[in-house]
Computed example of a mutant assay.
Amino acid sequence: MTKVLFVVRGDATVPSCRFRAYQFEGPLGKLGVEARYFVEGRRESPVDWVRTSFRLMREVGLGGYDAVVYQKRLQRERVSLIRAFHSNVWYDFDDAVYLGHERRFRQTLKVSAGVIAGNEELASHARRHHSRVAIIPTAVEVPEIYTPPPKDGPLKISWVGTAGNLKYLEPVFAALDSIRGAGTDAVLHVLTDEPGSVSGRPGVVIEVWSKHAEEKALVDCHVGVMPLPDDDWARGKCACKALQYLSYGRPVVSSPVGVNVSLFENEAFGSLATSAGDWASALTRWNGSREEIAKAGRLGREFVIENYDVCSWALTLKTLLVG
């Protein structure tokens, strides 16, 4: 059987590891490719770095892999060590990790056999330093069974993300206060790893993230939100959370930044919002008709199945890595 090793920073609770590596295990397996994982650790002392490097070199040297995918960290030295034992080593990234680290980014790419970027914004930057750049978008698993949004009760708005991104919710909080003050029965459900930092807000329900809680939140909500600032880091984002909502058949309100612009510019299954007033108008639109939510959600789900389903992209990844 063909074998691919993913060198990752953490377990499946780390979003980029989950969506860019671990979720490919099943789809690649069906294609005759065994996916294995080597976890580096996100912070290493110099001694740990040497020990981890020896373990990694042993794994690569003896594992019989057809390809190695090194994820996201800017580690020229470690990628060079891997390539001493294996020629087919690809660097994969889904964020603008080059910001403030251009030299390390260039050096890491130079010692890689190829580069996999999560979107065109990232790929265009990578092409400055490498001639072999492919785009594999951050795809999502689409539930086999579609569950319609709730017909009754308040408008349930969902946000899922890490604590570091909670600051982006400010326009959503302001919009929630506005529409609730105007008489709309609405609740914002926030699912995050550190919920204490946004507790005590009216109309906001906080819950600690888990995969089960995430799946339940996506089923129970009417609309998902993905607020972002318009800066270089956000423009490199891969719209993963928006695609998750769509895969469950839920429309999305998003900031007009990066990939989200092309996803929602025709507003067939989502809305774009910048100011708190825009967010309030967009959320009010989706509160107007549960039938419209269901119709738009089904269109979004079909769009994801056609363009961002992980099973389809697993075949592309296999072809890229091992032919």
Results as ranks from 00 to 15, higher is better:
residue 262 S to M: 06
residue 285 R to S: 07
residue 250 R to H: 10
residue 249 G to V: 08
residue 231 D to W: 10
residue 286 W to I: 00
residue 241 K to R: 14
residue 294 A to T: 05
residue 289 S to T: 05
residue 260 N to M: 08
residue 296 A to S: 14
residue 295 K to Q: 10
residue 232 D to Q: 14
residue 250 R to Q: 07
residue 268 A to G: 04
residue 233 W to H: 15
residue 237 K to A: 02
residue 240 C to R: 01
residue 267 E to H: 09
residue 244 Q to D: 09
residue 239 A to M: 03
residue 287 N to E: 13
residue 233 W to A: 12
residue 277 G to D: 15
residue 236 G to R: 03
residue 246 L to H: 01
residue 231 D to I: 08
residue 241 K to V: 02
residue 279 W to N: 07
residue 236 G to A: 09
residue 248 Y to V: 01
residue 264 F to L: 14
residue 263 L to G: 06
residue 283 L to M: 09
residue 241 K to Q: 06
residue 299 L to P: 00
residue 259 V to Q: 12
residue 284 T to S: 14
residue 257 V to L: 11
residue 300 G to I: 00
residue 277 G to E: 15
residue 272 L to G: 07
residue 266 N to A: 14
residue 295 K to C: 01
residue 259 V to Y: 05
residue 280 A to S: 14
residue 255 S to I: 07
residue 272 L to T: 02
residue 289 S to D: 13
residue 255 S to H: 11
residue 293 I to E: 07
residue 267 E to M: 04
residue 278 D to F: 03
residue 242 A to K: 01
residue 251 P to Q: 08
residue 266 N to Q: 14
residue 241 K to F: 08
residue 246 L to A: 05
residue 303 F to V: 00
residue 257 V to K: 11
residue 241 K to E: 06
residue 276 A to E: 15
residue 294 A to M: 06
residue 282 A to N: 12
residue 232 D to L: 15
residue 273 A to N: 13
residue 271 S to Y: 02
residue 247 S to Y: 01
residue 241 K to H: 02
residue 255 S to E: 12
residue 243 L to F: 03
residue 255 S to L: 09
residue 254 S to K: 08
residue 276 A to W: 12
residue 268 A to T: 08
residue 233 W to N: 13
residue 258 G to T: 11
residue 259 V to D: 12
residue 296 A to H: 08
residue 280 A to C: 04
residue 287 N to G: 12
residue 292 E to H: 09
residue 300 G to L: 00
residue 281 S to R: 08
residue 285 R to C: 00
residue 241 K to C: 09
residue 284 T to L: 05
residue 286 W to L: 02
residue 247 S to F: 03
residue 249 G to Y: 01
residue 298 R to S: 08
residue 265 E to K: 14
residue 253 V to F: 10
residue 245 Y to I: 05
residue 234 A to R: 10
residue 295 K to P: 00
residue 292 E to G: 07
residue 284 T to F: 02
residue 282 A to K: 09
residue 266 N to M: 10
residue 273 A to D: 11
residue 291 E to R: 07
residue 244 Q to N: 11
residue 246 L to V: 04
residue 262 S to E: 15
residue 275 S to P: 12
residue 269 F to H: 11
residue 294 A to E: 14
residue 280 A to N: 07
residue 271 S to P: 01
residue 297 G to F: 00
residue 240 C to L: 13
residue 257 V to P: 09
